[in-house]
Amino acid sequence: MISPLTFVRRLFLPALAAIASVVGAMPGRADDKALQSLIESGRLKVDRLLADEKSALPPNPSVLVVRVEVAPGTVEPVHTHPGPEYLYILSGSGSILIDGHDVSARAGDVVPVPAGARKAISNRSGPDPLRVLAVLLLERGKPVLSVVGP
């Protein structure tokens, strides 16, 4: 069994990069004919969940991928991240407060959070935990987060 960090470094990030290069800038098209053929035949399914062309990469970027589990009725403290963050809702439902705006989210949703935005996730799933995969683009050496409120 490999460690989660090894999984992210060796498998997840290269796969993410490969998918990004396959999907490319043209919606629904791949640059490689063999890959495009697999997609068109239905043997390979690639769903573009989010294309964010507004967020700039931080200088000297690093990627942090974390799984967050929020217990029913729990609201995390308001905090910020120095780089953009992308939240993929794995299961449950809840809301994400982003700079004063309440965004409802449920399993399968992707919620982009701009760099420096004040954010808090709350679980409104009833008895079930809210599970989120968070992908953060950070500048090496900077704090991952800063708590700014209760």
Rank of each mutant, 00 (worst) to 15 (best):
K54L: 12
P127F: 02
D32M: 10
S104K: 15
Y88V: 09
P129N: 06
G108S: 05
L64P: 03
E85L: 11
P82A: 06
V113Q: 02
D32W: 06
V65C: 10
L64Q: 13
P114M: 04
E53H: 12
K45A: 15
R124S: 15
G126S: 08
L64R: 14
V111N: 00
V75M: 13
V66I: 14
S55G: 05
H79R: 14
Y86E: 02
K54N: 12
V111S: 01
A120G: 06
A120N: 03
A105G: 10
I121K: 08
D31A: 15
Y88A: 08
I121E: 04
V113K: 01
K119P: 00
V68G: 00
H101A: 15
E76A: 10
A117Q: 06
P82R: 06
P129I: 01
A34Y: 10
A56R: 12
P84E: 03
P82N: 07
G83L: 01
N123Q: 06
L57G: 02
P127A: 09
N60V: 12
L49F: 02
E69S: 13
P114G: 05
G42E: 00
A30V: 01
Q36P: 01
R43H: 13
E40T: 12
L44A: 09
R106M: 10
A30N: 02
D32Q: 09
I96L: 14
K54Q: 15
P114C: 04
A56G: 13
I98E: 00
E53I: 10
D99P: 06
L44S: 05
V75L: 12
L57Q: 07
I96N: 04
G94E: 00
E76Q: 15
R124M: 09
A115K: 06
S55P: 04
T74S: 14
E69K: 11
L57C: 04
P82I: 05
G100W: 05
D99E: 07
P127D: 11
G116L: 05
D32V: 08
T74H: 15
P77L: 08
V75Y: 04
K119G: 01
R43K: 15
A107C: 07
R48E: 15
I96V: 14
D47M: 06
S62I: 14
A71E: 13
V103Y: 08
H101S: 14
V68W: 02
K54G: 08
E53V: 13
R67S: 13
L49Y: 02
G100K: 04
L49Q: 07
I121M: 11
L35D: 10
V78G: 01
I98K: 00
L97W: 09
